[in-house]
Computed example of a mutant assay.
Amino acid sequence: MVETLAVPTLVEPDEIRLGSGRSRRFQGSEHGAGISYFYIDNQPGQGASLHWHPYPETWVVLEGEATFVVGDQQIHATAGDTVTGPAYVPHKFTNTGTGTMRLIGIHASAVIIQTNLDPSSSSGTE
């Protein structure tokens, strides 16, 4: 059996940008990676609507403040904090600070699988 070595890949922000903003969606399977992520850049009041994934998700707050709802728990997090959410548990977050909130939502999957629970939300935008 011959092993194939993985090739390092650089993915520039414009390649994975969501819409016209600064947020990005990295789908690991498209780049030879075993994880996926959302890089979120939100203004006060913005965030993700209620949804769930069939795998755990981990968020790292890079800047600002966010309030997460994970199941029946509400968690206030600030820059430097890490929040975790188990598989199949509905969750959402909102920028509850006064400035820009930036976070990384790490998906324990090479493919992002998301079930939105708010009918007005758009699919796959975290």
Score class of each variant (00 low, 15 high):
46 Q>L: 03
122 S>I: 13
58 T>H: 05
92 K>Q: 15
123 S>F: 13
36 S>W: 04
93 F>M: 11
25 R>L: 07
101 M>V: 01
105 G>S: 13
96 T>D: 15
48 A>T: 13
55 Y>R: 00
43 Q>T: 06
50 L>P: 01
116 N>L: 04
60 V>M: 07
121 S>R: 10
46 Q>S: 01
80 G>P: 13
15 E>Y: 02
62 L>M: 13
78 T>G: 14
28 G>S: 01
42 N>S: 01
46 Q>N: 02
49 S>T: 08
124 G>A: 02
105 G>N: 15
5 L>H: 00
116 N>V: 04
34 G>A: 04
92 K>E: 15
45 G>R: 12
85 G>R: 03
19 G>W: 11
27 Q>R: 05
115 T>D: 11
39 Y>W: 11
12 E>V: 10
102 R>M: 10
22 R>L: 14
68 F>L: 13
89 V>C: 08
115 T>F: 05
54 P>T: 09
83 V>T: 01
95 N>A: 06
118 D>R: 06
97 G>H: 09
81 D>N: 15
80 G>C: 09
52 W>Q: 12
26 F>T: 07
110 A>V: 01
16 I>M: 08
93 F>A: 15
87 A>V: 07
64 G>S: 04
84 T>I: 03
6 A>F: 00
18 L>Q: 14
106 I>T: 05
39 Y>D: 13
89 V>P: 04
98 T>C: 09
64 G>K: 08
50 L>D: 05
5 L>M: 05
7 V>D: 00
120 S>G: 05
29 S>E: 15
15 E>T: 08
40 I>A: 04
15 E>D: 12
49 S>C: 03
103 L>Y: 08
79 A>T: 15
7 V>I: 14
118 D>M: 03
50 L>T: 07
106 I>C: 04
20 S>W: 00
8 P>Q: 06
38 F>T: 07
21 G>V: 02
67 T>I: 13
